Simulated assay, not measured.
Amino acid sequence: MENKSAQVNRIVQCAESLESGNINIYEFVSFLGEKNSSVLCIPDDKIQIITQAITRIEAGNCSKGEKGALLEKITRAIFDNTIFSCVRNCRTSTNEIDLYVQWTEIARLTHLQIAFPYFGDSFLCECKNYGEPVGVTYVGKFCSLLLCSNVSLGVMISWNGVTGRGKWDASKGLIKKFALKENRYIVVLDKNDLKQLSRKETNIFSLIGNKVQALKLDIDYSTYLKSHPAESEFARNGEK
């Protein structure tokens, strides 16, 4: 394993290479996110917290309250770091938010919000420890919370995901319709996503970015709208 001095030298060399190539930091980090680089994976000490929490949940012998606390512990391990900061149980006048997540000062100074614009300036994160997939009623409340909180991204961590067999059915359908109508996105992280993160098979930037992109591509029909040959005729008739 490299000693500290060798690691510092390697970092300096990388920084000099970026400088000579006129690549700014957010272009570089954005590239790492797109390539699902392990550089952006969760640190090992946080991975250990997530893995232990997942193991306890899967053992099936914890109460509902304990499971909720474990899910929040996982969420904090993912989002509370040098890049993001979390405020627990931040209240609005109409509701309660489990976690309000925003960029740290370091992240803002390095313009990481430009590299990952789908996070916005801040976003909301809620942990749901239901024994079943989260239904339409609660997803609808989360949609309302996003609107009154004036954020464009909501992350729902639900061990069993949300309801809906088809793309436009139940909770899954509501999430898509909400995205279409409001240009706001609810991303659901289930147990499979959490396990991928714990195994460093993905990083949170790629995971959320891909889910937001999937929502956009699934509902964005504008690319299929082409000029019809009869449009000019309608335009001339309209001028008469």
Rank of each mutant, 00 (worst) to 15 (best):
K211M: 07
K167I: 01
F205A: 07
K195M: 09
E182M: 11
V187E: 07
A170P: 00
K200A: 11
K177Y: 08
N210T: 09
T202R: 05
D193G: 06
L217P: 07
G209W: 03
A179N: 12
S198R: 06
R199T: 10
F205R: 06
K226H: 05
I204T: 01
K226F: 00
L189I: 13
S171Q: 08
E201H: 15
S222A: 12
V188L: 03
L189H: 13
V188S: 01
V212G: 05
A170N: 07
K167M: 04
L217E: 15
L180V: 03
N192W: 13
N192E: 11
W168Y: 13
D220I: 00
K226D: 05
K167A: 12
T223G: 07
K172N: 13
L215C: 05
L215Y: 04
N192Q: 14
K191M: 12
K195D: 11
N203A: 03
A214Q: 07
I219R: 10
D190W: 04
D218S: 14
F205L: 09
L217F: 13
G209N: 05
L189C: 11
L197Y: 06
K181S: 09
L215T: 03
K176P: 03
I175R: 04
T202V: 09
V187A: 04
D169W: 00
I204P: 03
D190P: 08
L180K: 07
K211N: 09
K216N: 09
V212H: 02
Y224F: 08
K176I: 03
I204Q: 04
E201F: 03
K191N: 15
D190C: 06
A170S: 08
K177V: 11
L180E: 10
K172F: 00
K172E: 10
S206F: 15
G209E: 02
I175E: 02
N210I: 02
S222F: 08
L217Q: 15
E201I: 00
A214S: 11
G209M: 01
V187P: 01
S206Y: 13
D218A: 06
T202N: 10
F205D: 05
L180M: 08
K211V: 00
Y224E: 08
N203D: 08
G173H: 03
I204N: 02
L197F: 07
D218C: 06
K191P: 05
T223Q: 10
K216R: 12
V187I: 12
K176H: 08
K176A: 07
R199H: 14
S198T: 11
L217D: 15
R199S: 14
R199G: 06
A179Q: 14
Y221Q: 14
N192T: 09
V187K: 01
D169L: 00
S227T: 15
K226I: 02
L197H: 06
Y185M: 12
F205S: 07
Y185N: 12
K200F: 01
K200Q: 15
A214D: 14
Y185P: 07
D190M: 11
F178N: 07
K216I: 15
D218K: 08
L215I: 14
